[in-house]
Amino acid sequence: MNTHTDVAPRPIDFDPAARLAGVLVGFDGSTQSMLALHYAAVAARHSSRALTVVTAFGATAQIETARSSTTDRSGSDHALEAAKIVLNDARRYLRSHPGPVAYRAERGDPSGVLANLSAEAELVVVGARGRGGFLGRIMGSVSSALPAHAHCPTIVVPRHYQIAAPEAQGRSASPGSGPRPVLVGVDGSQHSRIAALHAAQFAQDQHAPLHLLLVLPSLEGWLDWYPELDAPDQGFIDRRRVQLEDFLHTEATWVRKHYPGLSVTCSVRPGDPAAQLSRSTREALLTVVGTRGRAGLSGALLGSVSRSVLLQATGPVMVVPELHDARLRDQPGPLR
Rank of each mutant, 00 (worst) to 15 (best):
V309D: 10
R241Q: 14
L277T: 04
R327C: 02
H258G: 00
L328M: 09
V305Y: 05
S306R: 04
A275V: 08
R241D: 12
T281R: 09
R239G: 07
V255A: 08
G296R: 01
D246Q: 15
E283C: 11
T287E: 04
P217W: 10
R240F: 11
A274E: 05
T265D: 03
H258M: 07
E228P: 08
R294V: 06
S267H: 14
T281S: 06
P217E: 14
A252F: 04
Q276D: 06
T314I: 08
L262V: 03
T265Y: 03
E283I: 09
T287D: 03
R240T: 10
L262C: 02
L286T: 00
V268Q: 09
G235N: 15
R327F: 01
C266T: 14
D246F: 10
L323R: 03
E220R: 06
R241K: 13
A326S: 10
T250G: 12
L328A: 07
V268T: 05
V268R: 01
V309A: 08
S280R: 09
A300T: 10
H258S: 07
V255L: 04
F247I: 02
S218L: 11
L286E: 09
T314M: 10
D272E: 03
E322T: 10
Q312N: 12
V319I: 09
Y226L: 15
A313H: 00
V268P: 06
S278I: 05
L302D: 02
R294Y: 13
E283Y: 13
E228H: 13
T291L: 06
F236C: 13
V242S: 14
R294S: 11
G271P: 03
L328P: 03
V317M: 06
W225M: 12
P232N: 04
V289I: 07
A326Q: 14
R256D: 05
R282F: 13
H324T: 15
G299D: 01
P217N: 05
A313T: 05
V309H: 10
D325T: 01
